[in-house]
Amino acid sequence: MAYSEKVMDHFRNPRNVGEMTDPDGVGKVGNPVCGDIMELYIKVKDDTIVDAKFQTLGCGAAIATSSMVTEMVKGQKLDDALKISNSMVAEALGGLPSQKMHCSVLAEEALQSAISDYRSKKGLK
């Protein structure tokens, strides 16, 4: 098993890492028993994600997909962001080893959870 150079780059230098003060939406997925936990924070303005940050406990693939998804959602309309699938995240990273594809699901789920958190807070649901 080997990771792509892009995965290793995002693992080594994760983008948008850290906790967001006063986020508009938070997505928390995974659990410590599986070994992967991701928290995704989003800032929303005019139905557009203007900032995203994350904190992740997990393997190289989990950290890299977290980093990548925060890059992908910035500047996206919420409805467009919801269309981002785990395979799109994996593809943006130059692919993931097959047994690591489930890690990219974490990123997709965290994103959906953060958007639905934002919408329910706003009473939009």
């Binding site: 994760p14 890492v17 850290g18 906790e19 928390k28 410590p32 936990i37 991701m38 928290e39 994350f54 904190q55 992740t56 406990l57 950290i63």
Partner: peptide, 8 residues
């Protein structure tokens, strides 16, 4: 640990 949610 600096970006581990459970450490936070």
């Amino acid at each position: 640990r600096s970006f581990s949610p459970i450490y936070k």
